[in-house]
Design a binder for these strands. Structure first.
Lengths: 187, 187
DNA sequence: GTCTATAGAAGGATAGAC
DNA sequence: GTCTATCCTTCTATAGAC
């Protein structure tokens, strides 16, 4: 196996999805224009409507689903590599804090931003965000054996993202992680 | 004192501020157009730029400050009417859940939505949201006597708003409130 | 499937009469 | 301070050549 001199070309459709996800988490749904998307994805404008005939809404829905699955896998991997649940919860929060700091507080989960924007304005996208959160909740409930705690931990994580991005400081994420870990330890 | 037949006229400037706050929490910053603002405020378009020469950014900054002060007063009032801190924390979350349900999950705090949208795109507005969160944190730290807990409680509250609005269900808010109350009770 | 051009509406902002 | 008209840009979306 040699390093490929000309890397396998990423399909246009995927380039558009990744570029949109990237822009959504920095600018949100309304703040991201489709012309900006195709420029970032280095794709012609017509390709967007070829691959996503439903336009911005269909593209947004797929991005929400893709990002939701991606972050679930990320978190699940951490839960699986740690032995103890309290430790794994803490690790999720500290990793999030590290990522925020390393990326200039830009590389945050795109779901929350879009979820708040569309909750009262676009029923189809609202449902898509609801499904993602429900999947996260179910996965964590299984691991913690308690649905109420799972909901609280996810809420703390998402809320901490908001506070950290606004203040450009990881303190809220670490504080929320400490609380979440303690909560999980309790009987 | 008789009921006033012709109610005291609300100044144009304030009507614009209230209308903007209302639209921000439903549609966010990018999703709200200035033409829509003046239509909702029943004000002529020129008045907006007369009262807010800095345009959308200046208007947004004032709305963030106004909404921040309003919600701080709301929460502070609850903390003052209850005797015990754990009970007051729980009351804040249950009241939030009631309000969400009563308003069709629309009447949520506008700060988070705007905060996530502008965190990486508008430094002036980002700072405005950071100041609001810092004020909330300071006020709650004073009452709980612990900054780390205060941050975690606020994160849980904001994150629960996201989950509730997405799922159109108050369960996350009640679960987060339960956890926050327990956290406050701990030594 | 790729790409260009453009339609038609809405965006923020400004000028200037009143 | 109030209000109308308008400028220029950007938006989503479509048509149609290649």
């Amino acid at each position: 196996m040699t390093a490929s001199p000309s890397p396998a070309k990423v399909p246009t459709r995927e380039r558009i999805l990744y570029a949109t996800a990237e822009l959504f988490r920095r600018q949100g749904y309304s703040g991201t224009g489709l012309k900006q998307v195709v420029a970032e994805a280095d794709a012609p404008f017509g390709s967007l409507y070829h691959h996503f005939p439903g336009g911005k809404q269909e593209l947004g829905e797929e991005v929400i689903q893709m990002a939701g699955a991606f972050f679930q896998a990320l978190v699940t991997a951490i839960y699986d590599e740690e032995q103890e649940t309290a430790a794994s919860v803490r690790t999720v929060f500290t990793r999030a804090a590290e990522t925020l700091e390393a990326t200039g507080y830009e590389d945050a989960c795109p779901i929350s931003t879009v979820a708040l924007e569309v909750a009262s304005t676009d029923e189809r996208l609202r449902r898509a965000t609801a499904v993602v959160f429900a999947q996260w909740t179910d996965a964590l409930t299984e691991r913690l054996g308690n649905r109420e705690k799972a909901l609280a931990v996810i809420a703390a994580l998402e809320g901490a993202f908001v506070l950290c991005r606004a203040s450009r400081n990881t303190e809220p994420m670490l504080a929320a992680g400490e609380m979440a870990a303690r909560l999980v330890t309790e009987t």
